[in-house]
């Protein structure tokens, strides 16, 4: 079956020349990927990034932004490798939400 990411040659709309300034958090997603995949850590391969992005559902893939897909894949990989647990991540996310609400 053709994966959702495998879009070469399919019909699509006109190219719009969007130029998007990356936000601070997006740059930090990129930085985390570079650090985790660096040889001295070797906690993530580019193949794991791709597999976790390519296994997104078609709706999610299209709706999510570029670095949203990356962040999803990084978190999934770290959980799959046992570097972090779902519980730890859930607790930290709740803390972040509480901080956002106070801000």
């Amino acid at each position: 079956m053709r994966g959702v990411h495998d879009m070469g040659g399919l019909p699509a709309g006109r190219c719009e020349r969007d130029e998007h300034e990356y936000e601070r958090w997006e740059k930090r997603v990129d930085a985390l990927m570079m650090l985790l995949s660096a040889q001295d850590r070797d906690l993530m391969k580019v193949d794991e990034l791709r597999r976790n992005i390519e296994s997104l559902g078609a709706d999610a893939y299209d709706r999510m932004g570029y670095y949203e897909r990356w962040m999803h894949a990084i978190a999934q990989t770290l959980i799959q490798r046992g570097v972090i647990t779902i519980d730890e991540l859930g607790r930290k996310l709740a803390e972040q939400e509480a901080r956002d609400e106070r801000a």
């Binding site: 936000e23 958090w25 930090r28 997603v29 985390l32 650090l35 985790l36 850590r41 906690l43 999510m64 932004g65 670095y67 949203e68 962040m71 999803h72 990084i74 978190a75 770290l78 570097v83 972090i84 730890e88 991540l89 930290k92 996310l93 803390e95 972040q96 939400e97 956002d100």
Partner: peptide
């Protein structure tokens, strides 16, 4: 949601001494 997830994962990696 993903901005918060980035912050959450970065914090965990710092706590674990990975970055």
């Amino acid at each position: 949601y993903y901005r918060r997830m980035q912050a959450a994962v970065e914090e965990l990696l710092i706590l674990k001494g990975i970055v």
